[in-house]
């Protein structure tokens, strides 16, 4: 009798696991809601558990910085005087740029930082690259927002709970981010492939990319603001061009969730509406 009960119990839970695997693969809202709810409960635990690693990492970085403080000071002084000269030049260019944009009625993108969050977990799997952060809908975070850190892009939110969110990293196989070549402005797509080095796709025929070329976000897709650092070309193979991301996705501490929208001048919006009405 006990053996029979045991077999029934095993069979029942195997069926349940298979049902979850098949039903959950389509990411229905019920499953996503359930995932977000459970994550909300466990994120504070993971947050507490991850703090010692964060402290240890901070201490290691601090000692590294301390070792090079004098040479770093000299380098920064030289860089500072260079930047001061560049600043004067840039402010003149910014005025020119603004004047020309007004003339052309170019839409300005506005970037709002929704929240700053702490990364509390890793996927622990080579096949699914995502991470949990300790901010959710109660902090204004929504699904599909860009996640960045001081080095560059990190990913975008895919599941949002009340006090936690899951971020799909730029290295995940399901990640697609519109990017451009900094030098020429050629638009491409950054495709994750679960390796630490995502690949570039949709490079126009005839266009060339060199190792070391800088990649920035293009702003298309309305998720990532334009001109954010993405990474550098590190490998040009026959089948793919590999990118080393600026942000170290294996060593994330704090990230920002940003919202990006294009705002046009009221005159331009009115003109667009008039044009549409005329067309009808």
């Amino acid at each position: 009798m006990k053996e029979l009960r045991h077999r029934f119990s095993s069979g029942f839970f195997i069926t349940m696991a298979l049902a979850l695997l098949i039903f959950g693969s389509k990411n229905p809202p019920v499953v996503n809601g359930f995932r977000a709810g459970v994550a909300d409960v466990f994120v504070p635990v993971l947050d507490m558990a991850s703090r010692p690693f964060s402290v240890a990492d901070g201490f290691l970085k601090w000692t590294q910085k301390l070792a090079i403080v004098f040479s770093e000071n000299e380098r920064l002084r030289a860089e500072n005087s260079q930047l001061k000269r560049a600043q004067i030049k840039n402010s003149q260019l910014a005025i020119d740029n603004q004047r020309l944009k007004k003339l052309l009625n170019v839409g300005e993108g506005s970037v709002n930082t929704v929240a700053a969050a702490r990364v509390v977990s890793d996927s622990g799997s080579p096949f699914f690259k995502s991470t949990l952060i300790n901010r959710g809908t109660s902090d204004g975070v929504q699904k599909g927002q860009a996640v960045i850190n001081e080095d560059g892009i990190v990913g975008r939110t895919i599941t949002v709970g009340n006090s936690s969110s899951r971020v799909l990293l730029a290295t995940d196989i399901n990640s697609r981010i519109p990017v451009k070549l900094a030098s020429s402005g050629i638009n491409m797509i950054l495709e994750g492939d679960n390796s630490p080095y995502p690949k570039l796709s949709f490079l126009p025929i005839g266009e060339k990319v060199a190792i070391g070329d800088l990649i920035l976000t293009s702003g298309y897709g309305m998720v990532f603001p334009h001109d954010l650092p993405v990474g550098q070309v590190v490998e040009i193979g026959s089948e793919s061009i590999k990118i080393k991301l600026s942000a170290k996705l294996y060593n994330l501490n704090y990230v920002s969730i940003v919202e990006y929208e294009i705002t046009r001048s009221p005159v331009a919006v009115k003109k667009n509406i008039d044009l549409k009405k005329g067309g009808e």
Binding site: M16, L21, S125, F128, S130
Partner: peptide, 16 residues
Amino acid sequence: ILSGGPLGMTALLLIL
């Protein structure tokens, strides 16, 4: 759930 992997995958394998 916490790893973001397919729901039921680890459960199935651990039961086996």
